[in-house]
């Protein structure tokens, strides 16, 4: 089963919930940190590093001796990643979306593909948890191909927990793709509710089943609870505000370590979700 943990707004407790779920599960589980711009799961899971691989995307390279400067590649490229200047095609790898169009259209076969490193995937383990994280190289803009590389490690036969990036744009879509259920984590505040609504719209657009966890549930007001009621969205869990949890978090400890009752709640939630949405596994 594949469960994605997402939120419109950052800092609502996605990683807290994802890591908590992975730790509360009493069987092998894969935790995949797809928040590749700011991966934080490893801070809490402290996995023992198993392997590290660079992630490359394919970008064009031009054989200047064969290029006839016909301009067909530049004309096709929608991203200004290849232009014709000074008698030959010229590539801007950082702009390239790896569509491969220029290679196909070149009439003289002067364009081939080469690797461009955009980040890396780290794999480690911590008791029954296999932890994967994608780390986007600083200054690189394209998260989706890296998220794809992290998600190659999803295993159909076990529980997979996906820690998603915030927002509702392309990195989030790539992260939740293929999930059996999405948990939206929010806060009971105006910002929390506003961003939750965007996430809910996105999930409905993608036709993915989802439910809501309210973190720091007693820190604001009841607007999120009322919204869930009005919209008929399942409220999966409320995690109360606690200075103890906040302090434990600040030291890199997890909620499961800080609060054993919460561990039971998360475990119960997983059992329900696996039964209802995961066909029992």
């Amino acid at each position: 089963m594949q469960i994605a943990v997402a939120s419109g707004k950052g800092g609502t407790g996605k990683t807290t919930v994802s890591v908590g779920l992975a730790q509360a599960y009493d069987a092998p589980v894969i935790y995949l940190d797809c928040d590749v711009e700011e991966p934080n799961g490893a801070i809490f899971l402290k996995p023992e590093r198993k392997f590290h691989t660079d992630v490359n995307v394919r970008v064009p390279q031009v054989d200047k001796d064969n290029c006839v400067a016909c301009g067909k590649c530049s004309e096709l490229c929608q991203f200004n990643a290849i232009i014709t200047m000074g008698g030959a095609a010229m590539v801007f790898p950082e702009m390239c979306h790896s569509c491969g169009g220029c290679v196909q259209i070149c009439p003289v076969g002067a364009i081939s593909e080469t690797d461009n490193c955009i980040g890396s995937v780290n794999c480690g383990s911590s008791s029954q948890i296999t932890a994967l994280e994608g780390v986007l190289n600083i200054g690189h803009a394209m998260a989706p191909p890296l998220i794809k590389a992290v998600k190659k490690h999803v295993h159909k036969d076990v529980l997979n927990i996906i820690d998603c990036p915030p927002g509702t744009s392309c990195p989030l879509l790539e992260s939740v793709k293929g999930s059996d259920f999405v948990i939206l984590v929010t806060e009971p505040t105006p910002f929390g509710l506003h961003d939750l609504k965007l996430s809910v719209e996105t999930m409905r657009e993608l036709q993915l089943p989802f439910g809501i966890i309210i973190n720091r549930s007693d820190s604001g007001d009841d607007r999120v609870v009322n919204y869930c009621k009005d919209e008929g969205i399942p409220l999966l869990l409320e995690i109360p505000e606690s200075r103890k949890i906040a302090e434990a978090y600040s030291r890199g400890e997890t909620v499961v370590q800080a609060d054993s009752r919460l561990k039971d709640n998360l475990e119960g939630l997983l059992t329900d979700l696996i039964e209802t949405y995961g066909g029992g596994k």
Binding site: G10, G11, E37, E38, L136, I138, G139, H140, A141, M142, A143, P165, P166, G167, P171
Partner: peptide, 10 residues
């Protein structure tokens, strides 16, 4: 500004 280190932040 936005969170993260990716294209919107840049």
């Amino acid at each position: 500004g936005p969170p993260g280190t990716g294209c919107p932040v840049i």
